[in-house]
Amino acid sequence: MKRMQNHSKVVLWAVIIFFYLPIIILVVNSFNADKYCGSWDGFTLHWYEELFRDREIWHAMGNTVKIALTSTLSAVILGTTAALAINKWKGMIQNAHYGLIYTHLVLPDILMGISILLFFVAIGLKQSLFTVYLAHTTFCISYVAMAVLGRLQDFDNSILEAAQDLGANPWQTFWKVQFPNLLPGIVAGGLLAFTLSIDDFVITFFVAGPGSDTLPVKVYGMIKRSPKLPIINALSTILILITILAVVASRMLGRDEKKS
């Protein structure tokens, strides 16, 4: 048993190094003066300077935040009502409802991207920030609904019965009893949707029009065309930093919740 544990531990640590090494090298290289990052040519902040001078990146950053905020907000409302409906009523309609939300999570991104592009072309809707918003809201709904459904399944329905027996009307029962209980699920789903919206490339790439590039679409364009790879290193480092801060923040929030 001991030997098996040691062998498997070696594999695990090799995998963790495999996971982190490319990222660490990327971060180090963002401070590397060498243009091709082949060898260490001294410390520089030059790439960050160039990055901050690039107006298009700031524009893309603004688009990303706009889309993430609006689609997360819409998805939090639609996803929560979806989860409530699926949990409360049974039957053909809710089976189909659940099927649609679940299948959307399983299918590869590229199919979502191409299908919604075909739809927009077919109805003659021009590609813009609005089409990106519609596409993002669609996949965010699924994530929020799943997070809230998970929470609903652990919920003890007899509490609702107790509230109604004690004279609360359905409206009060929902807002005063069920909603506070669901809130952690809604927040978790919302955070997940927000992060995935910021990170999404494939779906956005299909539905973004001129001027509606989000940050990942812009980064992709730079990877494909820009000769200055270190600038992308600098941008990636900033993105990684934001992610780590967000994860740490959400962990801290989670800890507070557990305490109270």
Partner: peptide, 14 residues
């Protein structure tokens, strides 16, 4: 959790 594109790009530079 870090951007999917960034992780693929890291490999391109490696």
């Amino acid at each position: 959790w870090t951007s999917f594109l960034v992780r693929v790009f890291a490999w391109k530079t490696l």
